[in-house]
Nucleic acid binder design. Sequence first.
DNA 1: GTGGTCTAGACCACA
DNA 2: GTGGTCTAGACCACA
Lengths: 128, 128, 128, 128
Amino acid sequence: MIKIDLKSSIPIYEQISREIKKNILKGFFKENDPLPSVRKLAASIGVNPNTIAKAYQELERNNVIYTVTGRGAFIAENNNKTLNKIPENLLNTLKNVVIEIIYSGVNEKIIIEEVKKISSEFKGKDSE
Amino acid sequence: MIKIDLKSSIPIYEQISREIKKNILKGFFKENDPLPSVRKLAASIGVNPNTIAKAYQELERNNVIYTVTGRGAFIAENNNKTLNKIPENLLNTLKNVVIEIIYSGVNEKIIIEEVKKISSEFKGKDSE
Amino acid sequence: MIKIDLKSSIPIYEQISREIKKNILKGFFKENDPLPSVRKLAASIGVNPNTIAKAYQELERNNVIYTVTGRGAFIAENNNKTLNKIPENLLNTLKNVVIEIIYSGVNEKIIIEEVKKISSEFKGKDSE
Amino acid sequence: MIKIDLKSSIPIYEQISREIKKNILKGFFKENDPLPSVRKLAASIGVNPNTIAKAYQELERNNVIYTVTGRGAFIAENNNKTLNKIPENLLNTLKNVVIEIIYSGVNEKIIIEEVKKISSEFKGKDSE
DNA sequence: GTGGTCTAGACCACA
DNA sequence: GTGGTCTAGACCACA
């Protein structure tokens, strides 16, 4: 369920964090579901437990999961409101990629098709 | 013309490289136009010349600019290749941002509007 | 294993990059083998770590090695693509040397013998 | 007759020097033929006269041309003996290119074909 | 520990 | 003047 590319330049903890978010978006992880323990997940992916711990910390900071001391980590309730604006840091990243893609010679239409394809993989927040 | 955020986690040389690409896309830099010299740009931005040199070298590797020994760096000809597919590394980045944005509670429609807005800032390759 | 000529006009990072490619071709470095760390190799050769880092970055860009953050650099899988044409930049260099050699008074036959000798030192891609 | 690529990473004076050698090998320039004056050649190619001067100096050092004060530069007699061995510096360059080419996935056979093609463009020294 | 980025400053070839 | 290479040394994120 959680695929990691060790060779990628994206930090492993970041990849893990994203994978978990994806799983939530896809509905594989539901509210209050327990996450695998840091050690088990570390062992099954083959990375350092510290790396998993860091991913979980990031997720907790963003209210994606919550941890209960001694019992582990769980999926938080999805209390995100529906936003009408893309948060600024994400908007910047989006701008940068889109520019790079346009520069590589791909036109708007193809990019939009791709965005649709990506988002169709997930249940949109508003349709939940 | 070239705006850098020294506090950003994106490497400065990467920001410079992107800014130059943006300027080309916007038509501010045209084929064979000279770029500011490494030293001058470094002074005007307030970073080390090595950092600019690294950006220029990256741009040259990607055939965005070319350098003439003893004379400086110049905008390369626009290969004008039109791609029908987003290059894999860029596609991955796109996927990641879009997922993050959806997760933050923004729906597809708003993302697509934003993509249109970004791309309308630039002359697309096919309309040149 | 990695011999560098500090007096050569060929940049050190370029020499290092070539030496590593040679070692791969000779079979001394195999897929997923770890490379010496930037700092260790720098110390053993007696150059600045930045220079090694530059060599490794070049090799990574060319998919010869890959780096795993926090762990180090490793030999990439051998794509095993067989080319029927010499890439243009290499062809140019080849043309230039051959012309210089012919000009120095050496005939074709001797050059070809030498090419055979060089290539016999390595396991060709197709015999792997 | 003398083609220069300003964008190339090969120094212009080196390119000029090679072009002149090629012209001699091809028989376009014969013993005692006058070379164009530094200024004229500079003007016709569109480079700095100093660059031409440097190329001529290099050629003179290698006894490819000779200069008569006040009268200009001329093609030297071809007094190169036939060599049975490739000079060391050229051999090293040859080794490096061949290794790079093999690494790129091209096999010995194709390289040798190419060497033959290159050398067939010129009258070999021994057949002169 | 690992590699990546950046600075300050030197030196070089080239034009 | 131009860019390219290299050193010495700092700091950083990541594992």
